[in-house]
Write a protein that binds this DNA or RNA. Structure first.
Lengths: 376, 376
DNA sequence: GATGTGGGTGAATCCACTC
DNA sequence: AGAGTGGATTCACCCACAT
């Protein structure tokens, strides 16, 4: 397979269509060398939870960590897990766009190490998210609380880039018009959604529910974006990405998982374009400058504007600024000034008189925007 | 004060009654030298979170958010925070009985580092617990999910000792006979419970709710046990311990907090054997948002909804919003919009077709709620 | 007294774009 | 790239006070 390439020439030669919507076979770090720098919009990672349970733990060099309960060796295994985590996180950041974000899911066995490593590498945590399970496995021995949740971390590749995708308005509208919280409630993946192998056994031990991935993708990607899953497993990320009109790239080491995921994704019907458009809010609307209203004579120079209670007033000047009591400035600056505040939205603060009633100048802006839409 | 003693003779000479049910003034690590080895049954720690805040944050109404910018929360680097964490954790383990347990609370700013350090020091994590807040502060800028929870870690001092206290049956009985989960729901501390200073301002910026501490103490201690809080602050741990018939030891650096906590605890009436309505806390709220139906595939994107008389229609989009004739929004907003009203209950207004009959989408919500009732 | 209204506030890593 | 500026942005609860 093409998963191991020279490090000196990280594969810009490879055309996107060679890896887009495919599963690359190989170890996560090596396989990611097949992807160019800054080529994916979002990453969802469900890394091995490993540790104390005696499962196999591989060092980055692929050697197997000898599981011993000797204290020193346990320390060594934490170090090995941390090195593994650093390696795949660095590989992920290279292929992630500066405006992209990374999601990781884990349990208390590994999530603290992953989170600390993220911070050490100067990823910038945006939220930690709790997936509350409606139907978690009970605790059988009655010596602990029922482990009823897993933790996700959502992070940007560094603290500076604030341009990441977050579909705030759509999430809020879908959530009964209140903003989405950091605690989510979903059932675990079971029943017909759970992938079975030819023997009727579950095909993958940690298959995640599609609803969880759907919320993640709807929150932090746009239609057409490229989503990378470096621990592809049963391919939930790919299946949901295809259904929601996003592209995917998967990395997976085991052929049996690749086969199962390939079949699964082939059966997915993508949703139509009309159902995929994302609700946007005011921030996405075109800018309209106040002087446009003056220039187009919707507000004449000399007009007196007031606040809703007529406690403050200002006069519109021909250059699109306001003046009041020796002060002058933009509708925002002067609105702030007359109230003694640092900031003010002049569009909603200032009102004009129309047939005896006070109306915010924002209604005039809305008219301008409506006119612009016909042009578009 | 007696907080700094020689390291060579760690104070076994000090009789318990000299520190039991008192607040030791001083730095956490130094002050703990006043306590003998293996002398406390449980530790609750609310360490500085190391928030890294930027500039001032204003609410939409321009009011200023009162940020936690205290000196004690400032650290030069992650390395410095880690060193601090190691030091107090080691000091805590020395004074903790082998059968005791340790609780730490934090947010995503610090909890991953604390958890990783716990593991590095061979503490044995028993659970991570999520405190879901009923009334968290909103996200004001709409660039992240509302940060609606904090995380606690419950750990034994090492993997070997299994004799820690966990009152499984009492918790289960208090929880409608189902075992207590790892996600807890409590309001933040406010109102009359919130300690005020002489100016009516909050006495401590991060006072924790008594209900949270009550559940922790009821879960992991027995009456008469000794509970240590190395970051005593406003003394919630002490107040709850006294009320529930446990002993406490606090460590606190600032005299103002010591004074406030002392007065607070003095006013606490210990409970007799009367019980614990606090224990159950709030039940999970049954609110179900529309996107849950979409994410769980009960309503597929592309489905057409109508009102009961089929006079209006709208299409369900994958983001959990509705669209109709160029307009889009939540089920409530769009319901209002198509009727020309200010408000509308989308749950009862919009209908879907089921076997030829129109049914309000509220029946689907009822189904979800029925499934959730097991959780409540 | 019951009800309604307006104001305050909580561990927060909280803007985007142009020049 | 750093400064300047337009202008978008909140949920649940408690309390004081008015009706």
């Amino acid at each position: 397979m093409s998963s191991v390439l020279t490090k000196t020439k990280p594969s810009r030669a490879i055309a996107p269509q060679s890896w887009l919507d495919t599963i690359i076979k190989g170890d996560c770090v090596a396989a990611l060398e097949a992807l160019p720098d800054h080529s994916v919009d979002m990453i969802f990672a469900d890394p091995p939870y490993n540790l104390q349970l005696g499962g196999a733990l591989h060092r980055p060099d692929q050697s197997l960590v000898d599981a011993v309960d000797d204290e020193w060796d346990q320390f060594a295994s934490f170090e090995a897990y941390d090195a593994f985590t650093r390696a795949w996180l660095l590989a992920c950041r290279r292929v992630l766009k500066p405006t992209g974000t990374l999601w990781v899911i884990g349990s208390y066995h590994n999530i603290f190490r992953v989170g600390a490593t993220l911070q050490d590498l100067h990823f910038w945590i945006l939220n930690d998210i709790v997936w509350r399970k409606t139907n978690p496995m009970p605790n059988f021995k009655g010596r602990r609380f029922q482990n009823a949740h897993e933790t996700l971390i959502w992070a940007a590749p560094n603290a500076k880039h604030k341009g990441y995708t977050f579909n705030y308005d759509a999430l809020k509208a879908a959530n009964d018009d209140v903003q989405m919280r950091s605690d989510w409630l979903f059932p675990i993946c079971s029943g017909s959604e759970r992938l079975k192998d030819e023997n009727g056994q579950k095909a993958h031990p940690t298959q995640k529910p599609e609803a969880l991935l759907a919320r993640i993708l709807m929150a932090s990607t746009k239609p057409g974006d490229i989503v990378l899953d470096p621990f592809f497993g049963s391919g939930t990320t790919g299946a949901v990405a295809k259904r929601l009109g996003r592209h995917f790239v998967g990395v997976e080491r085991e052929q049996a998982y690749i086969d199962a995921a390939t079949r699964r994704i082939a059966a997915v019907e993508p949703l139509g374009k009309a159902t995929l458009s994302v609700l946007t809010g005011k921030k996405a609307e075109p800018r309209v400058a106040f002087n446009v209203l003056v220039e187009s004579d919707m507000i004449k120079p000399g007009t007196v504007l007031t606040d809703a209670r007529r406690r403050h007033s200002a006069i519109v000047r021909a250059d699109g600024t306001l003046a009041s009591g020796g002060e002058a400035g933009s509708i925002h600056r002067l609105g702030a000034r007359v109230q003694g505040l640092d900031a003010c939205n002049g569009w909603t603060f200032w009102h004009y008189e129309d047939e005896g009633a006070l109306k915010p100048i924002d209604v005039l802006r809305a008219k301008v925007r409506a006119g612009l839409e016909k042009l578009a």
